[in-house]
């Protein structure tokens, strides 16, 4: 088998916040503005629905930037640079739209477990409470229908990442999809059947990509409810899954000498953060140490 050599990528000249830089053609604006991009100064464009292992869905609109000549703002996570593009990542228009998007999300969804949401709210001066106490929300009781993970859709921002991870892009199980329309749209199995009755194989790949904590390990969910979840007391150790010969990387999150959840490195060239039920949830045996032998 011969591997065709990719033709070298042409460089294009773009202007980002007044600074002229050169980047490879086809780069997204987000990558061009990222830490490994050529721009001086950290742009730190917020993202929610963007996933480093997934095709951009363009749904959350928190990453919008201004491109000269474009009638509307454009999503940095998916728009590719073009020769001569003039981009503003922090103009008044951009800040206004980010502020509003965060307010709209914050007023309809519980963002308490969304990493960085609070920081961004502060940065853009977002005040979700200004829509009043009667603003419609997606509040609902969490769905706890199996022992492995919980679906707390009151925290769901409809980023589509779990659906993409479960479907065509990775898992090919298609247990969940988006149902309904507009504000009523939601993630669902067919006829809202319990997960245990659905096609789900509990790979947890949806949990891996969920940006809000709407999907979480049952362990994490229970510990949060009990008030014992404390990330500052957790360690992360990446090792190799003990179950089969594939050798997937697993990252064990440990608090008080107990594994509390398992993730997988997204930059692994083979698994891209995906695991199967055994690597993801089959950690109990590690902890079944006869009492007295712990530590």
């Amino acid at each position: 088998m011969t591997i065709p050599l990719r033709p070298p990528r042409r460089l294009v000249d773009i202007t980002v916040d007044g600074e002229e830089v050169r980047v490879a053609e086809g780069t997204t604006i987000l990558d061009a503005c990222g830490d490994s991009g050529p721009c001086s100064g950290k742009k730190d464009i917020p993202t929610l629905c963007y996933g480093d292992t997934l095709t951009p869905k363009n749904a959350c609109r928190v990453c919008m930037v201004e491109v000269e000549g474009s009638r509307t703002l454009v999503p940095a996570c998916s728009r590719r640079v073009e020769q001569g593009m003039v981009i503003s990542t922090d103009s008044e228009r951009v800040r206004h739209s980010r502020k509003l998007v965060l307010e709209l999300l914050g007023s309809s969804t519980d963002l308490s477990t969304t990493p960085r949401a609070e920081e961004w709210m502060e940065r853009y001066g977002a005040d979700p409470a200004r829509f009043g106490p009667d603003a419609a929300t997606v509040e609902q009781p969490p769905k706890v229908d199996n022992d492995l993970y919980v679906r707390d859709y009151g925290k769901c921002i409809m980023c589509y990442k779990c659906v993409d991870a479960c479907g065509e892009q990775w898992q090919n199980t298609f247990a969940i999809a988006v149902a309904g329309r507009g504000f009523d749209s939601h993630i669902s199995t067919e006829f809202d059947a319990p997960l245990t009755d659905s096609a789900c194989v509990y790979c947890g790949n949806c949990v891996e990509v969920c940006p809000t904590g709407a999907l979480s390990f049952k362990t994490e969910f229970d510990m949060r409810a009990a008030g014992t979840w404390d990330e500052s007391r957790q360690t992360q150790t990446t090792t190799i899954c003990a179950y089969c010969g594939v050798g997937c990387n697993v990252t064990l999150h440990v608090q008080d000498n107990e594994i509390v959840k398992v993730t997988s490195p997204h930059d692994n060239p083979v698994t891209h953060g995906n695991l199967c039920i055994k690597g993801r949830f089959g950690f109990q045996h590690v902890q079944n140490v006869p009492t007295g032998q712990k530590d």
Binding site: A59, R61, S97, L105, S108, I157, M158, R181, G182, F183
Partner: peptide, 9 residues
């Protein structure tokens, strides 16, 4: 359709 936040909410 509900796909994007500015319009859905």
């Amino acid at each position: 359709c509900g796909q994007c936040v500015p319009c859905r909410v």
